[in-house]
Design a protein around this nucleic acid. Structure first.
Lengths: 258, 258
DNA sequence: AACATCGGTTCATATTATGAACCGAGATGG
DNA sequence: CCATCTCGGTTCATAATATGAACCGATGTT
């Protein structure tokens, strides 16, 4: 791994549950030597991506990250534009809805609206979703360039539950079905007990930027409910796409046009 | 500079005005070889700190930054806690109020509430304020550890306007005055035509995390107004400190107690 | 047709990163 | 009270990694 990769991997050890980490600890977690870890942390701290608590001498994520994230959000207002529609869809369906953005070969969860119900699916912002094992991933692939789809099969497909589709044929069949009806459907492919439907959010080039997914406990779902969730997700996805690209939104927008 | 430092410096070339940059361009701006710049960008992209627009092949800040920033913000809700008080102070004074956080030897602007007046001071989130040349910096130094103050004089003091204090004695005198009355006051030390008063926001260890500043056009300010702004900023700063540290807020909190 | 510039790649070379061993300071505990 | 951990941090010979001049093919410009 490159030195830069190692440095960034250090950042990725800071989580919601463990927002501050000591030197020896992070060296152990990352598998790096203590001296190496420290040099990297110091380099990161010089650029404000890491801060050190002066008293405990523990490290945490730095203010520079907030600064850079603000730059990005100002320019690429994906979450800002989509958030109201995500909320609307969550209210309409009564289920947890999450928004994902494609990045580096996977989908990154960037926004979540939790269901108001007691028995609900919980999703964390920041969670990384594989393309082959989630409704979001299938919806994304269904509208992606052939190269993107192909790249997904470059590595063996990990099974997350006994229900995960791990053969290329099964995945492609799901993709074909999703392309046909506009949304994908997946039950327990990534987490036990979770049913999801997902629709793509298309950019100005007609290819997906990310996805929108409705996640419910499997016990609450039948075909009719799934289909109505799917329709609603599609419509919300189209609205978001339209707002992002500045184009007029047509109720009967064709699914694929090239 | 370390390889990691170079990689992060690449990130810092993306600004609000130039959110996407081509390879040759960023290599030129950063003074790195094109091959080097590309390797670093690829390493950053693998970890999602950078994205490449597939069509134009230009680079931009990646979704991983949003993810990391959210982790940080969830844990360190500085802005979230302070924002209501910043707004309140802006309404009370009728002037632009900005909030800064100390990081790597300078103050980083993390939140701004603009004045409703037509003739107002404009401040950008993300702006970096030097300790010696701004009201915020002086207020920060006035409550900092002696080592922190000393470190500020390690390098020559840059003059930003003809009014910038560049001698150690002048700065220390301003610091002494600020420590005495609880807030700092500075006119045109960083930008021409701008008058500021600032108060510190103290962490649980009694030392400042950042500052709160009221910025006005010099033409609107006299001693009485400046003092009332100063008092208001102090009080707002104390309220924010109290909320951050979970401590009870006392109207007559001593300025320095060690 | 000639020229410039773009993003991207190659590979011998030189700089840089690495980590075992080592500090001193606090905890821990028998 | 001494022995023993573990902590954050440092050193320096060694090993790995980063570097950049030269080069590609593609895409404008003049």
């Amino acid at each position: 791994m490159s030195t830069v990769g190692k440095a960034i991997s250090l950042l990725e050890h800071f989580t919601l549950k463990e927002p501050e980490i000591g030197l020896s600890d992070i060296a152990r977690k990352s598998g790096l030597d203590k001296a190496t870890a420290r040099r990297l942390l110091v380099a990161l701290a010089e650029r404000r991506l890491i801060e050190q608590e002066p008293l405990s001498r523990r490290y945490r994520l730095g203010a520079g990250l907030s600064r850079l994230a603000r730059m990005r959000d100002a320019h690429l207002p994906f979450v800002r534009v989509a958030a109201p529609f995500v909320r609307e869809l969550a209210l309409e369906t009564g289920e947890t809805v999450h928004l994902s953005e494609f990045s580096a070969g996977a989908l990154l969860t960037v926004h979540v609206e939790l269901s108001a119900k007691a028995n609900r699916v919980s999703v964390d912002v920041g969670q990384i979703l594989p393309l082959h094992g989630t409704a979001s991933g299938i919806a994304f692939l269904a509208f992606s360039r052939p190269e993107t789809v192909e790249a997904c099969f470059g590595k063996p497909l990990t099974a997350f539950t006994p229900h995960t589709m791990t053969s290329r044929d099964k995945v492609m069949e799901a993709v074909r079905l999703a392309a046909e009806r506009g949304y994908s459907r997946s039950a327990q492919g990534y987490e036990e007990g979770v049913h999801s439907v997902a629709a793509p959010i298309l950019g100005s080039d007609g290819f997906p930027l990310g996805t929108l997914a409705v996640a419910s406990p499997v016990s609450r779902i039948d075909d009719a409910i799934a289909d109505s969730q799917g329709q609603a997700a599609c419509e919300a996805g189209r609205k978001i796409s339209a707002h992002l690209t500045g184009e007029q939104w047509h109720a009967s927008v064709p699914l694929r046009q090239r």
